[in-house]
């Protein structure tokens, strides 16, 4: 797997967009993998009763997908230092969420890079936030 060094990254660089099909299976499988058994993440009838139009993705999974998106781009040597997200519209089954990201800052003292991330689905912005990763120095990998 290719990795990025701190020196290779420039503020303003855009990450390639990543579309994620929001299948019902993905929403249920990720909820269970995160040990989140809230009924709104797997039971459509109860989700409707609780005021939702269908089951929807849990926030732990949004964290997980944003983490995956940034570390796929940064490479396996990257160490995630922060994930700060705000949720907007829900991720319902049948939609697609497309993640995009832009490098917004570099901190030389600890080789930390900040990436603004955004995940859009058919309803609007599902997630907006920032991920901070520490990248290896040139020659370290």
């Amino acid at each position: 797997m290719n990795g990025r060094t701190y020196e290779e990254v420039a503020v303003g660089e855009e990450l390639p967009p990543l579309p994620i099909p929001l299948t019902r299976t993905l929403i249920v499988a990720t909820a269970i993998a995160s040990r989140d058994y809230q009924d709104v993440h797997h039971d459509p009838g109860l989700a409707v009763e609780r005021g939702s139009k269908d089951i929807f993705m849990n926030i732990l999974t949004t964290n997980g997908l944003v983490d995956r998106y940034v570390t796929e781009w940064a490479g396996p040597a990257a160490v995630v230092k922060a994930i700060r997200i705000r949720l907007g519209v829900p991720n319902y089954p049948g939609d697609t969420m497309t993640l995009s990201g832009t490098v917004t800052a570099k901190h030389d003292e600890d080789r930390r890079v900040e990436i603004a991330v955004r995940g859009e689905n058919g309803l609007g912005a599902h997630v907006t936030g920032t991920v901070a990763v520490r990248l290896p120095a040139k020659g370290a990998i």
């Binding site: 797997m1 990795g3 994620i20 993905l26 499988a29 990720t30 269970i32 993998a33 999974t61 997980g64 997908l65 983490d67 995956r68 570390t71 796929e72 396996p76 040597a77 290896p136 990998i141």
Partner: peptide, 18 residues
């Protein structure tokens, strides 16, 4: 479930390489 293929999560060798 997340579709995350980062090898450092499952393989000691890959993790040590980083």
């Amino acid at each position: 479930a997340m579709g995350d293929r980062n090898p450092v999560y499952l393989h000691d060798d890959a993790a040590r390489a980083t």
